[in-house]
């Protein structure tokens, strides 16, 4: 048997790198689906023209309540995934590069060279929305709870839940518009793979 002479021809670097595992993508899409149901139902409950159009308050409220209370579940189940836990660790920690990224501002088209797997904007967004979702779940459960817990004024809880609806709506709209503007980022979430060149440009510190 002839000796294989590997190493003589240098193997070409693959043009793609793995960005998200199957588990990470599943967490993302499960959360997104629950969010979509929750926010669409919310709009039908409280945006007056939509409420006129849809009605069916009991059904819509039930969809809203269950979708909402389940939103944190994919993330909690996701803690079983090593890759996801590493993402959370990454999101939590801010490096010097993150400061540079923020300081460079949106006008610097090359600021991606400062970013790790997630840039500072993504980290701030993720941390903020995790807190905001929890507040929505807690206020939502208080509202779901009918007549009990009257020592917390219902009107105040509803007010926070209302404001939260608009803030989260804006936040998620921003998140989606960023994704719409970046097909490669979408490929990452769809297939798990991104182009190496894109990774170098937009997440320069990620691959080392």
């Amino acid at each position: 048997m002839p000796e294989t002479r590997s190493g003589v021809i240098p193997r070409r670097e693959s043009p793609y790198v793995a960005r998200f595992t199957r588990a990470e993508r599943a967490i993302h899409y499960a959360t997104a689906a629950l969010f979509l149901f929750c926010i669409a139902a919310a709009a039908c409950l409280y945006v007056t023209p939509l409420a006129h159009l849809v009605g069916r308050r009991h059904l819509v409220a039930t969809v809203h309540e269950w979708a909402g209370v389940l939103i944190p579940v994919p993330v909690l189940l996701g803690l079983a995934s090593h890759a996801f836990r590493r993402d959370l660790h990454e999101i939590n920690r801010f490096h010097d590069g993150d400061r540079e990224w923020l300081r460079a501002g949106g006008s610097d088209r090359r600021r991606g060279r400062f970013a790790g797997k997630f840039n500072a904007g993504q980290k701030l967004y993720a941390s903020w929305i995790a807190g905001a979702v929890l507040i929505m779940v807690v206020t939502g459960l208080l509202l779901w709870n009918r007549f009990s817990l009257t020592w917390i004024p219902r009107s105040g809880v509803l007010f926070i839940h209302d404001i939260g609806f608009y803030l989260l709506g804006f936040g998620v709209a921003g998140h989606i518009s960023k994704a719409v503007g970046d097909p490669e980022a979408r490929r990452g979430m769809r297939t798990g793979l991104v182009r190496r060149t894109w990774a170098r440009e937009t997440h320069g510190q990620w691959l080392g």
Binding site: I91, N92, F94, L124, G131, L134, V138
Partner: peptide
Amino acid sequence: TKPIGRRVFLGTLGLG
């Protein structure tokens, strides 16, 4: 590095 993410998360909860 700094745990800014956790601070933003807890800050949001506190604000709420």
